[in-house]
Simulated scan of single mutants.
Amino acid sequence: MNLNKMFKTINNLKLLQFLVLLTISFYFFHSTENDAFLACSVIFIHLYFTTGFLDAECCFSITIRKNLKCNIGWSIGLTFSMALHKKDLSLLKSIQESLESIGSITKHNKDSIRLQVTSKKDLAIIIKHLEIFPLITQKFPDYLLLKQAFELYSNKEHLTIQGLKKLVAIKSAMNFRFIKWIKKSLSWCETCN
């Protein structure tokens, strides 16, 4: 990273901090007992705020499941998700709107809701956003791994044994606990043992 880019990132962080405080202030000073105002409106949020919130709350995952209907016997899923308390529905809707209305918001459990993105088209929007407004925390390496998996998926490499092996390696880098399970399940894969 060159010096100019580093200073630009620092200035963007200051802007991000200001926008976070502004948005939180707006949320608390305009909420009512029943949140009717917030439920009917979408809060404008700056795209740097969206990235900052993603940095704090989102999750990237790669799912590899045994599926005998697939030619190679395994299916692949890429997921972006973010769960918040149900009282933050309007904020989650605003984040969804700032990302071109991608994915769907569903009930996650008793007190939380989740924005989940699994379609190739919507994942491409997330990747495009994070290329312009990059993550700055330790979540960035996981994003790079998801992006790499997305490229394999987009090029249909996941439909081959070699592509599956690459995805196993990427997923293993995202979550070390996965290694034991995959070694047991993919005993036929000599590069996994």
Rank of each mutant, 00 (worst) to 15 (best):
I10D: 10
N12D: 10
N12M: 02
L13M: 14
L13G: 10
K14H: 15
K14P: 01
L15V: 12
L15Y: 10
L16W: 01
L16K: 06
Q17T: 03
L19C: 05
V20T: 10
V20S: 12
L21P: 04
L22W: 05
L22Q: 09
F26D: 08
Y27W: 08
F28I: 13
H30E: 15
S31R: 15
S31E: 08
S31G: 12
N34M: 15
A36I: 08
A36T: 06
A36R: 13
C40R: 15
C40N: 03
C40F: 09
S41C: 14
V42M: 04
I43T: 11
F44N: 10
I45C: 11
I45M: 14
T50D: 08
T51F: 06
T51R: 06
L54D: 04
L54N: 05
L54Y: 05
D55E: 12
A56E: 14
E57Y: 14
E57L: 09
E57D: 12
E57W: 13
E57G: 09
C58G: 08
C59K: 12
S61H: 04
S61T: 13
I62S: 02
I62T: 03
I64P: 04
I64W: 10
K66M: 01
N67P: 02
L68W: 03
L68A: 07
C70P: 00
C70F: 07
C70W: 09
G73V: 05
W74S: 04
S75K: 09
I76K: 02
I76S: 08
L78M: 07
T79C: 10
T79S: 09
T79P: 03
F80C: 05
F80E: 00
M82I: 07
A83F: 06
K86M: 03
K87E: 10
L89F: 02
L89T: 11
S90M: 09
L91M: 14
L91V: 10
L92H: 02
K93I: 05
K93R: 15
S94T: 06
I95S: 03
I95R: 03
I95V: 13
Q96Y: 07
Q96C: 13
L99M: 13
E100P: 02
S101N: 15
I102P: 00
G103C: 04
G103W: 05
S104K: 09
T106F: 02
K107D: 02
H108E: 15
H108F: 06
N109D: 15
N109R: 09
K110R: 12
K110I: 00
D111G: 11
D111C: 04
I113H: 00
R114K: 09
L115G: 10
Q116N: 06
V117M: 05
S119L: 11
K121V: 11
K121W: 12
K121Q: 13
D122W: 00
L123M: 08
I125K: 14
I126R: 03
I126V: 15
I127H: 03
